[in-house]
């Protein structure tokens, strides 16, 4: 039995109804495989006792679950109103320059994916940039090269 299988059984047991383990299981499979590849969906479905199609139908609804490969690191710049008001677009553009890609793309070496994202619930500490799901607050364009450097150095 795979490690994922065992962990998903534990997840299923932590709810009164095993169906509730779907999102946590998908998140787990995503983490282990880097994205929800056909193999990841199959493994997840087997562990849950359902079909890959059901898993994919659910996963495709959610913004954090990717059905196509993404970079090893994920950089998400909030461009909703509060962040935009204090210069989020300039931050996003600086990332595009530093990484030499357009928003929505992954660097050719597969290291970093860059994308704009909707309000991250940190509007008072704008601009919010989520780097591998950890928030950087008050990000200014001049902070971008340091963040990219940290990622490149594997910090």
């Amino acid at each position: 039995m795979s490690e994922l299988y065992t962990e998903v059984q534990r997840l299923k047991d932590s709810y009164p109804d095993w169906h509730s383990a779907m999102l946590p299981a998908l998140r787990l499979a995503h983490e282990k495989h880097g994205y929800l590849s056909p193999d990841a969906l199959r493994e997840c479905a087997d562990a849950l006792g359902t079909t890959p199609a059901v898993c994919e139908a659910v996963a495709s609804f959610y913004d954090m679950l990717h059905l196509k490969p993404i970079g090893r690191h994920m950089v998400e710049v909030c461009t909703n109103v509060s962040c935009a008001l204090v210069g989020a677009q300039q931050v996003l553009e600086r990332f595009e320059q530093e990484l030499d890609i357009s928003a929505g793309e992954t660097t050719p070496d597969g290291e970093v994916t860059l994308r704009p994202i909707e309000c991250l619930g940190g509007c008072g500490w704008a601009t919010i940039v989520s780097v591998d799901h950890h928030y950087r607050t008050h990000v200014k364009p001049e902070d971008v090269s340091r963040i990219v450097q940290e990622l490149r150095n594997g910090e």
Binding site: T79, V81, A84, A103, R115, P116
Partner: peptide
């Protein structure tokens, strides 16, 4: 205007 040409996720 600071809201000029802001790239929204929907455009992706």
């Amino acid at each position: 205007s600071p809201l000029h040409n802001v790239l929204a996720p929907v455009a992706m």
